[in-house]
Write a protein that binds this DNA or RNA. Sequence first.
DNA 1: GCTGAGTTTGTTTTT
DNA 2: CAAACTCAGC
Length: 828
Amino acid sequence: MSSSGIHSSIGDSAWPVEEPASPQPRAAKPTAVSSDETVGSDPHEALFEGLTEPQAEAVAHTDGPLLIIAAAGSGKTRTLTRRIARLIADGVPPWQIMALTFTNKAATEMRERALTLLDNVPWRSRGLTVTTFHALCARLLRRYGEVAQADGHPLPVSGDFTIFNSNDQVALVKRVIVGADLSTTNWPPRSVLSAISAEKNKLMTAEKFAASAHDFYSRTIARLFTGYQEALHKANAVDFDDLLVMTASMLQQSAMVRAECQGRWRYLMIDEYQDTNHAQFVIASLLAGDETPERKPNITVVGDPDQAIYSWRGADIANILEFEENYPSARVITLGENFRSTEPILAVADTLIRKNTHRKHKDLFTSKPGGLPIQVHRCRDERHESELVIDWFRALAEGDPAAIGDDGKPERWRDMAVFYRTNALSRSIEDALRAEGIPYTVARGTAFYDREEVRNALAYLRVVANSADDVSLNRIVNVPPRGLGKTSLERLSAHAQQAGVPLYEVLGSTDTIAGVSARAAGAAKGFVQMAEDWTGSGSFLGASVSTSLAELVGRVVDDSGLRKMYQSQAAVAKTESEAERVDNLDELVNSAAAFEEDYDPDADPVTFVAPESGKASEAGASPAPPMLVLLRAYLERVALVADADAVDPSQGAVTLMTLHAAKGLEFGAAAIIGLEEGLLPHSRAAASPIETEEERRLCFVGMTRAMRHLLMTSASRRSQRGVSERTMASRFLEELGTAHVVRTDSTDFGYDPGSDDTPSHQLSAKDRSSALTEAKQLYPVGSKVRHPRFGVGTVEAIEGGASVRAKVKFRETGTKTLVLEYARLEPL
DNA sequence: GCTGAGTTTGTTTTT
DNA sequence: CAAACTCAGC
């Protein structure tokens, strides 16, 4: 595209670069990956530093569709980031570039790294869109809703819509089930929701689905689907699927919206493309535009089919496999070299993934040989498993040569992680870490916002932002108790239902409603008065309207009585979580303040205004957005946090997370626990070979997160819902092969009483005490020992646990706690 | 209308 | 084993 229509169109833009504003004739499109000259002669050489040739090629190749098939650990995000920086350095205005990532965390990182590459000049990334699909859609719906309406395609929601998370969805679908008189029959809300979600993902509407439903099951689902969508509509709310589906149909139907979006974003980049679903594919295609002989869309997608782990959520691997068919001019670049893991880890992961038959093989290779074998350990039970993992972590942290290798370096807590298939597995590890005093964080992004007190405060805010949100209103209208009991509320709700208006309107109306006491009616009006005061609308208190988001949140927490309620509860609190509730409310206020501070209108596609052509661009501050805009953006953010967003490496703590949340991250040392049949592969996936392959990919994703050390454990007994049961080791462990794998079995082989009346912890306790006695004889307190790394020291204590540990005082390094199993201590 | 004791129930993964 | 739910008594 040497005579780029795209580039000439921005030639006169006011983009303030030192380089000539008109696009300098780009170095001829590099045609061969092999040419050093191509790369070396580039005016922005620094942007290629540290990249391999295929990566440099991917970065330099700036025109037309580009597919990057990237192996695990090959630096795909880095490559994408460089490409963004490269485009900007070449004179493409940043507001014409959009990159979509999987989590907010990945987006933030990419934005910051791109900025670093651009020498940290803030205006250089002004207007650059780096976000997630869901956040983008929320912004597009708010921004282009009016345009779509003007174009004759009104959205089913207004601009102040609320985003319902899965808890809200469940609450809503429960109400629909009750409303449809199906509550006595067995229609579990979660499975109803997943059936509905699956249809929505296919861009199926409730009406179309109802028309095609013939059997009893689908007709019932159709009824609930219709009721659910109506309830969402009434609450002026959207769920996660709606965000995508509504955006897709808005772009499909409204040529005006399509034109505006295509005009604004000329470069589209999508990370983790193997995990996009159909709606996301449609959105991406419409944003990029079709390929024609005259026009090649600038769409770059990056992904790895071996890391596709979200098909249960509608992700369609065909999106990445058929990219070349959709864009015949697409260039394809494969990044196979792994920069993350040591050779053994990579080799074993490769052995595993080769067991998938529905797969195009891709060679994984590293140019950095060396590294320790991976460890596979069969434990007695989950307690033993936790202790084993922790002992391993300790040995790694202490720099024990047996654990880190002779030329290895100690690992920090923050470089260690535990992965598991289901969230329930985190408990035993957490307990053990807490007992050992090792700092840890569980990557559950929603955990904070899931607390009762925080959800209540947010429900108040959501009512402020959208008074039609009946789900939130019902949650807090009588919290703290203000005399609006169940019966009164039911009558008021029924009245609202009949009148076809939101509950909120009925609460504030002066009509008398049969069966509602004057006292209850007064309470209702009091509630509405309070909420009106917060927004300043329609009251003499309008002057007192909050000036900052944090102030608004603070007022809501105070005026609603939530703070008072939790304060009095804290006085008689029995549990820690009860005592912390007031603190969490304060924390919420802080989070609002932090959001407000970080809020960058230039990074928000809704509020960002591109500088006009021909005029010098002002890098000056944009006007502060109105409070409600800020509140909605805040609530939007809160609704869209991901589990992986909670991973904060600046904390010096071990990270615990599900295998799904681990995607895209890396750690020096990783332990994957619960490698048992029924858990990984999960029992729900066992019946289908396709799903079993996805479980295998999940295991592969977990393994390839590890840079230097990998431990995989299973427990021969595991307690689930209170009952301890025997397990079978995962087939994946067998499939790892024998090369680079060290296997250990701590279970009692040979005679097995096979009954449940010999709890395993008794056995292990016996083993432990004998090992402890033995160790105490070998290393009596006060005796001298030699450590291969720390030298000579004095034994201070021998301690029990899952494995025996010695406290040794060394001359140089001070007192260390060493796991004898690893430490290779030599008695002197 | 509100509270707490007792009972039932359900278990993948998440934007 | 918990969370969610029910229902009787204040």
